[in-house]
Amino acid sequence: MALSERSSVQGSVKEVLREFQVSFFALTRLPSFPWTFVEKDLQSSGSSELISQVLKQFPPSVRYRRLFLSQLIRRLEASGCEPLDELYDALAEVVGAEETMECYKSYLLPAGGAVSLMENIALISEGTTGLVTWEAALYLAEWALENQQVFTGRTVLELGSGAGLTGIAVCRSCSPKRFIFSDCHSTVLQKLRDNVRLNGLSEQTTPAVSVEKLDWTAISEEELREIGADVIIAADVVYDPDIAGSLAKLLSIVLRCSSAEGLPQVFICSTIRNLETYGGFKQQLEAEGVGHEVIPAPVNHVFPYNRQSAIELIKLRR
């Protein structure tokens, strides 16, 4: 095999390996896995080093690991290959393990490393949706990775940070000067603080990071000026018509809080689940004198999520 062909094959193997790791760490649906590659790797190497490597990272949920290992062993048996003892041992460890409501998810970054988060298994828990990562947060993070200049050297405020995926990705990859995570639910804030620490971020790091309680209905223009954000971002915060009005008023105040460099840049990313709710939010923005433009979608697919969902990123303007 020519050197160029060998390099091409090696490159393809690395791409598939990364796809496998990305899918596993983010708890992607099992049918989407590159199973054939994994089977061939185990058969040819005679080692479960690949599986061991990922299972030793921040572990996904007990149920997910059990389903994954059971599926892999079944596929190996069906192909006539005797599964390795290490796979049976790994399955035995999780068969009797206690299920919990929380698990780790890790989202691999293009430049290396990962954003690792403790998230809830249930989409809605303790009366909030903020304990899991939603699709718009992944979409916004992908856009940020392609537009790092928007955040470099800036003070960034994130509204409704939830589990923290977008903000941590920006801090790890986009070199902001300062980043303020915010939310209003006490349980979400505690989980957010834990996830920020898990990823090695704090007031003493670069960038300097803080986690703040921010009530959209109570924060004043003076308080927003004190924050001094150059860039404001939010993902999946337009889902409840009862809070859309408060958010529109807050964003109107934000755009009045000009700095020496001019108006802050404001980006809102939304999964459009209900056209009436989303359209109503835009109407309330217009009523507050706030216009918007739709920003093109990110080109590179970094994180696994349902790309059939209707997601829109808008930039606000006065």
Results as ranks from 00 to 15, higher is better:
Val95Tyr: 06
Asp240Phe: 04
Val290Lys: 09
Phe181Asp: 01
Cys171Ala: 13
Thr277Leu: 13
Gly113Lys: 07
Asn147Cys: 10
Val16Ile: 15
Ile314Glu: 08
Ala144Trp: 09
Ala111Leu: 09
Gly164Arg: 06
Arg18Asn: 05
Gln21Glu: 10
Ile51Ser: 09
Lys213Val: 14
Glu102Phe: 01
Asn195Gln: 10
Tyr239Pro: 01
Leu72His: 05
Glu19Arg: 12
Ser173Thr: 00
Gly279Asn: 05
Cys174Arg: 08
Glu86Leu: 15
Leu76Asp: 04
Leu27Pro: 01
Asp240Val: 03
Lys40Asp: 12
Glu135Thr: 14
Ala141Gln: 03
Gln148His: 10
Asn306Trp: 02
Arg273Asn: 15
Ser309Met: 15
Ser48Pro: 00
Ala235Gln: 04
Glu93Asp: 14
Ser258Glu: 08
Pro60Ile: 09
Val94Glu: 10
Val16His: 00
Gly164Gln: 05
Lys213Phe: 15
Ile233Phe: 00
Phe151Val: 00
Ala141Phe: 01
Asp194His: 07
Asp236Lys: 14
Ser270Thr: 10
Tyr239Phe: 15
Arg74Tyr: 09
Leu189Met: 05
Cys81Asp: 04
Val294Pro: 09
Gly167Met: 14
Arg63Gln: 13
Leu247Thr: 00
Glu86Trp: 06
Ala208Val: 12
Leu140Tyr: 01
Glu98Asp: 14
Thr133Asn: 10
Phe68Tyr: 09
Asp89His: 11
Lys282Arg: 13
Pro264Ala: 04
Lys40Val: 12
Ser52His: 12
Asn120Gly: 12
Gln190Leu: 08
Glu223Ile: 11
Val62Thr: 15
Gly262Phe: 01
Leu72Gly: 08
Ala26Arg: 02
Ile253Ser: 03
Ile73Asp: 07
Cys171Thr: 09
Phe281Cys: 08
Gly245Glu: 08
Val62Pro: 14
Glu5Ala: 14
Arg273Cys: 15
Val9Ser: 02
Glu93Thr: 12
Ser220Asp: 02
Ser79Gly: 04
Asp242Cys: 13
Arg193Leu: 14
Ser45Asp: 09
